[in-house]
Each structure stands twice: as structure tokens, then as C-alpha cells.
């Protein structure tokens, strides 16, 4: 497991985001157990309260579930949920930023569409 933290957001959010990414990319399967708060805390040298806050965030979002006495598990359907949320955010996270940068550079709408088509053509975008 590889975690990488910076100062961009609260630590518990970064931790939650990285576990989410691992669920999304198949690092943790649906129904599989994720490392415990204790394990993560000791491995990453992060205060257990912070780790717990991050895990609880994922529980609240319906991505993880607590099984009493057993630990935390990835909920069935978690991947689909992440996918839907990311699709919802795609416009804000990517399209808007793309347009702002394009405007700064004076790239026209036609040119932008051309660039997208070129990207697809070059095969840099995997389906």
C-alpha cells in the first residue's frame, strides 16, 4: 500500500480519498476487508483519531461498512457509487478547468474540440 500526503487538504480527507482510489482501481475488492485503524495508524504514523475520522467519512459515504467485532469492509456496490459520483463531478473537476485554462491561452472552442479529437486519435486515451 502506498500513501502519499501533502498539505493540500486535511489529512483525514486525503486518507479517505486514497482509500477511495484504491477501492475504485481494484486495490481493495468489494466485500474485502480494509486495514484496521490500528494498522493504518501504526504504519503511517498518523494519530488514530485522524485515521478513524477518515474511515468514518467513507462509512458515511456508503463505501465502507463496519462489521461488529470483525473490522471494516468495502461495501458491495462501492465501485459503482464512486463511478457515479466522479461522473457527477467530472464537469466541475475537469471541463470547467479545461475551459478556464483554454480561455487564458486564447484557444478557441473549435481548436479545443480538435485537440480532444487528436488526443483520442493518438490513442493516449484508453477505453
Amino acid at each position: 500500500m502506498q500513501f502519499d500526503f501533502d498539505g493540500s487538504a486535511p489529512l483525514y480527507q486525503q486518507l479517505a480519498a486514497q482509500i477511495e482510489e484504491m477501492i475504485f482501481t481494484g486495490g481493495f475488492d468489494e466485500g474485502a476487508q480494509v486495514p484496521s485503524t490500528t494498522q493504518l495508524s501504526q504504519q503511517l504514523h498518523i494519530n488514530p483519531a485522524t485515521v478513524l475520522k477518515g474511515m468514518n467519512m467513507l462509512v458515511d459515504e456508503g463505501l465502507l461498512e463496519k462489521r461488529r467485532g470483525l473490522g471494516m469492509f468495502v461495501r458491495p456496490g462501492a465501485r459503482q457509487k464512486i463511478m457515479e459520483r466522479r461522473k457527477d463531478n467530472f464537469y466541475n473537476d475537469y471541463v470547467k478547468k479545461l475551459l478556464v485554462e483554454a480561455a487564458k491561452l486564447g484557444i478557441t472552442k473549435e481548436h479545443l474540440i480538435e485537440l480532444i479529437e487528436r488526443g483520442e486519435h493518438d490513442g493516449t486515451i484508453k477505453h
Partner: peptide, 12 residues
Amino acid sequence: DLFYKELLKSYQ
């Protein structure tokens, strides 16, 4: 590194 880990172990 070892100390920070042992500290958290002990605390937990």
C-alpha cells in the same frame, strides 16, 4: 521511525 510506531502501538 521505530519510536513513532511503538508510541502509537503503546497508545492503542
